[in-house]
Design a binder for these strands. Structure first.
Length: 603
RNA sequence: CGGGGUGUAGCUCAGCUUGGUAGAGCGCUUCGUUCGGGACGAAGAGGCCGCAGGUUCAAAUCCUGUCACCCCGACCA
């Protein structure tokens, strides 16, 4: 049965509510796909749900192809599971926690590693039971620090999460290894996003709080994306947090620009504060790139790690950790103060005379020239800091290493093809990880091997932000596909709420007859989803129907009016403009065939 | 959590500075004329001015508190 406009709920809006800023958010609201209930939680109206369900159907299909079995796990999860894996702390305030009437504490699942590991762990006992891949499509809860951009960052969202279990890490087809399944999921993801018609790029990523050591993100390029991706011409692409850089020069022996001079900078604990202070109070221009940003971490064995980057750069903890060779953490502020670090005013020379402090500096900061740095005394900074004179000659060892986030313009690593790194913004729609044994170890999941020895179980996990795909499809802007224009959404055919909208100029008499025939033929013989705009002229005159059809972005519109019918003709128009700005006039007889043909050319 | 901002009709917003019975456009209802790209005219309906206190003869407007929402920031010291 075709869907009739008057029988469904499509509350289109002429103006977007004022709190919607990004195009996908505005259009999802205007086209009547979703409505906001509260900060970061959205209801799905019929149009939105239909698209969501189409995405879900594609995901299910590809998961089945990849050999994953669908399951369904609870949202309410005992907090001890989270304590056993130490993730209650790792997730911190992002974890929604509820207490039941008996005072038992539960987490609302932001993800399900703990629960699946517990679940599947109890279902397997032998290496012969592996590999196994399971997945679910379910609502996740995250107490986001700041929900925003509508459905792009919400507190409640739909996620497809798959988990795989193995006894071996590496091995090709038929081995049952983690690598094999990872590759299958990776390929399934490529097909899913291709079929959904969203342009995407695959990016090397940090694993984040999920854990594990190899990971790729699937990103939809868009200016409203919250992630920064760096690429080179040779095809290397990585998330900023992960991106490696090629060699950069350093020169710790560069000349000083003057005598070390203390400057009173009351209340200027931040880089920006100091620059503003210099400009306003001292009438001196000071750029952030002329400052040294000095961070203090606690490392293993009671040692401190002092990391120094240029004021306009960011320390990358993962890189620093790799350089230092042991786990490090941001120090507690009070503890740091007691240990003699003037938090907010720390400079590299804080290491002088301290044998439990190691200094690491990024090449761009390890240069001669003019530096302003913290003076290791609250409310004071130093001008004319010089590495050789003020630190190395004082007996401090300094290690120069890449410890910062990459930025646009950095050299790309030679082994990745070299060249220069370019930055783009992306919306993360999928993420695959090789988890390893993090969860199975924490929860004691093992399996017997050929020799009847208990061996650890290795895991992988694979997530897709289902509703993000909708927003990303609308948001997308590439040479090949645009998700929206001034008139509204332009859906990829595969996830459009309907494939065809039929717009009768007046739904009555012969027009009505033709419309109903077309709708039923398209549905029953070609499996299309058809929306018939049966609103009467009193409710919606033709102009309104056209505007609404454009707004909700249905790929093909067929217009049927008395005038055309007098010549046995109807009009057909592709939303993406692929058959001209005004569409084409064709005979009723050709309409169905032409519609099918047109649809094949629409992404 | 810090900073900034906004809560007035279904939607977008004006009114607040300088207190004096609540406004516009769109949408909605009825009637008429229209009817192929958001029609026109006429007549209507619709608001506890987020909530709670306070000041005042009088509060959407001033004060205090509170809640909600939005933006910016962020273990970067």
């Amino acid at each position: 049965m075709p869907t009739y406009w008057t029988q469904t709920v499509i509350p289109t809006l002429r103006q977007a509510p004022g709190d919607a800023e990004v195009p996908s958010h505005q259009l999802m609201l205007r086209a009547g796909l979703v409505r906001k209930l509260g900060s970061g939680s959205y209801s799905y109206l019929p149009l939105g749900l239909r698209s969501l369900n189409k995405v879900i159907a594609i995901i299910r299909d590809e998961m089945a192809n990849a050999g994953a079995a669908e399951i369904f796990m609870p949202t309410l999860q005992p907090i001890d599971l989270w304590e056993q894996t130490k993730r209650r702390e790792a997730y911190g305030d992002n974890l929604f926690v509820v207490t039941d009437r008996h005072g038992r504490v539960q987490a609302l699942g932001p993800t399900h590693e703990e629960v699946v590991t517990d679940l599947i762990g109890a279902c397997i006992s032998s290496y012969k039971d592996l590999p196994k891949t399971v997945y679910q499509i379910q609502t996740k809860f995250r107490d986001e620090f700041r929900p925003r951009f509508g459905v792009l960052r919400s507190r409640e969202f739909l996620m497809k999460d798959a988990y795989s279990f193995h006894t071996s890490l590496e091995g090709g087809a038929g081995s049952g290894s983690l690598d094999e399944t990872y590759d299958k999921q990776y390929a399934a993801y490529q097909r899913i996003f291709e079929r959904c018609g969203v342009p995407f790029m695959i990016v090397e990523a940090e694993a984040g709080p999920i854990g594990g050591n190899a990971s790729h993100e699937f990103m939809v390029p868009s200016p409203t994306g919250e992630d920064t991706i760096l690429t080179n011409d040779a095809g290397y692409s990585a998330n900023v947090e992960k991106c490696e850089t090629g060699p950069r020069d350093s020169d710790l022996t560069g000349d000083a620009t003057g005598e070390l001079e203390a400057v009173n900078t009351p209340g200027c604990a931040g880089i920006e504060d100091v620059c503003v202070f210099f400009k306003k109070q001292l009438k001196t221009k000071l750029a952030t790139k002329n400052m040294l940003k000095t961070l203090v971490f606690s490392g293993a064995n009671q040692r401190r790690v002092v990391a120094v980057v240029r004021g306009d750069h960011e320390v990358n903890e993962a890189k620093l950790r790799a350089t230092v060779g042991c786990d490090i953490a941001m120090g507690d502020q009070d503890e740091m103060r007691n240990a003699g670090f003037a938090i907010g005013y720390v400079g590299p020379h804080v290491a002088i005379g301290k044998d439990d402090v190691d200094v690491y500096v990024d090449p761009d900061a390890a240069q001669g020239g003019f530096w302003v740095t913290g003076a290791n005394e609250t409310d004071h900074h130093h001008k004319h800091f010089n590495w050789q004179r003020d630190l190395i000659d004082q007996g401090v060892n300094v290690t120069v290493a890449d410890i910062r986030n990459a930025v646009e313009g950095d050299p790309a690593p030679a082994e990745r093809g070299g060249g220069t790194l370019q930055a783009t913004k992306g919306i993360e729609v999928g993420h695959v990880f090789k988890l390893g044994c993090k969860y199975t170890e924490a929860l004691g999941v093992t399996v017997s091997d050929e020799n009847n020895q208990r061996v650890p179980v290795i895991m992988g996990c694979y997530g897709i932000g289902v509703n993000r795909i909708l927003a990303a499809a609308i948001e997308a802007k590439t040479e090949t596909r645009t998700g929206h224009d001034d008139n509204g959404i332009i859906w990829p055919a595969a996830i459009a709420p309907f494939t065809v909208v039929i717009t009768p100029i007046a739904y009555e008499g012969q027009v009505k007859q033709v419309v109903d025939d077309l709708a039923s033929t398209l549905e029953t013989e070609h499996g299309m989803d058809v929306l018939v705009d049966d609103r009467s002229a009193e409710i919606a005159r033709p102009g309104v129907k056209f505007k609404d059809a454009d707004l909700i972005g249905i790929p093909i519109r067929i217009t049927v009016g008395e005038k055309g019918l007098a010549n046995g003709e109807v009009e057909i128009k592709a939303r993406d403009g692929s058959n001209g700005a005004k569409g084409e006039t064709i005979t009723v007889d050709q309409c169905v065939a032409h519609c099918v043909a047109l649809l094949q050319n629409i992404a």
